[in-house]
Simulated assay, not measured.
Amino acid sequence: MLGLLLLLQVLVSCLRLGYSEVVPSFKTSCTKFFYEKTPPSDSLRPTNAARICQVYDNKYRFATLYDRNRRIPVYSAYKYQPGKGSRYDRWFVEPQLINQNYRRYMDTEDSIIDTYGITSADIGKSQAIDQDYVDAQGLDRGHLCPSGHQTGDDNKTATFTLTNIVPQYSTLNQGAWKEYEDITMAQKTQGCDTTYVITGAVPGNTDISNGRVNVPSHIWSAACCVKCNKPLRAWGAIAENERSKNKVKVLELLDLENRLAGLYGGKGVTLFKNACARNKAHILDGEASDDFSTCQRITGY
């Protein structure tokens, strides 16, 4: 009886933990975080990529394309839904990046080590670990899917996985990029029913932790605003991730895609299917109306 009770306790604990699925394609899994269920073009995909459906408490929270070699995410895709909730104070890693047969839920290093009898070095072969960031001078653990863009304890907690983190200079992370996340996004999403966001990092030429974790050269973000199931507007933002730089450039989606094409070696970049609202951008900007009449103008009904 005691053994059965202990087993039940473990099962309940597992259900409460987040878990992440490393999947073969975003086109069939956790598609709801991409506009029209379509991920960005493959031009962003690195050689040794992993697609992660980030789940917490049995619910999909966001999606991440992860670079195993550089040990940083390429991008995280999510829905913008800021609200109240508590920040998490520990960091998760991804068991299925270590071994596809390991459990699906994101977990702490200590728990994985105890469960599978492996070491932090074993975990670190496929991803960043906590130690990688301990001595990173002047660098923060920069969220691609930020906790501030989520609502509720569970949604916020799910963002605290190192598969969603890049080394971001503190001057930028706590300065202009924070202003973009907290203020600009709130302003530009006014009137949107749903805003799809893809935030990414361009690989740089420097590393931390003895070459283990890449420091991105740029941080970028793109947003697609949907109203009444129709694209309303889209925009982008990009910033150089340098110690002496603290500036975010807000620009049109097409301009961001063109800049990224250059940064990713000249390959064409498409972030949203049909470019979201490229041809409809700012149609309703500045128009004051209630939701019903706005939907009438967009849909024709």
Score class of each variant (00 low, 15 high):
S25G: 03
V23W: 02
V166C: 02
G138V: 06
P95W: 07
E36L: 11
L251I: 15
G200M: 05
Q127H: 06
G191V: 01
C295A: 03
R71I: 11
L65I: 08
P24Y: 05
I298K: 01
A128H: 01
F92G: 06
I52E: 06
R259S: 15
T38D: 10
K188G: 00
P24G: 10
P24Q: 08
C30P: 08
D207P: 00
A201F: 03
P46M: 13
F33L: 07
G200H: 07
P167M: 03
N214Q: 08
Y105P: 04
A277H: 04
R103M: 11
P24A: 10
R68S: 15
Q54I: 09
T206G: 04
S209T: 05
V74T: 15
L253S: 11
D153P: 00
L256C: 15
Y133E: 11
D130T: 13
D110M: 07
C224L: 13
Y60I: 09
G266R: 05
P146T: 01
T294Y: 02
Q127Y: 06
N258M: 10
A288L: 11
K125P: 04
G236W: 05
N99M: 01
R45L: 07
G266N: 09
R141L: 03
N214I: 11
Q168E: 12
L253N: 13
R104Y: 08
G265S: 11
K227R: 15
N173W: 02
A237Q: 11
L162C: 03
K188R: 13
N205R: 10
W220V: 12
D67W: 07
R243Q: 15
F272S: 13
T270M: 09
S170A: 07
T195I: 01
V248H: 13
Q190L: 07
P216C: 07
D182L: 08
D285Y: 01
T270L: 12
L284N: 12
L44D: 10
G124Q: 06
Y169W: 12
S25Q: 02
D193A: 03
M106I: 01
I112Y: 04
G200V: 02
A49R: 01
H218W: 11
V213I: 14
D110E: 14
K245D: 12
E240K: 14
T189A: 03
I98E: 10
P167K: 00
I98C: 09
I129Q: 03
L15S: 06
D42G: 05
K178A: 12
Y169E: 01
A223D: 08
T28R: 02
E257Q: 15
L251N: 05
K227V: 11
S170D: 07
S221L: 12
S29Q: 12
Y133D: 10
T294M: 14
V269S: 13
N48H: 12
W177R: 01
G236I: 09
C14M: 01
R16G: 12
Q131K: 13
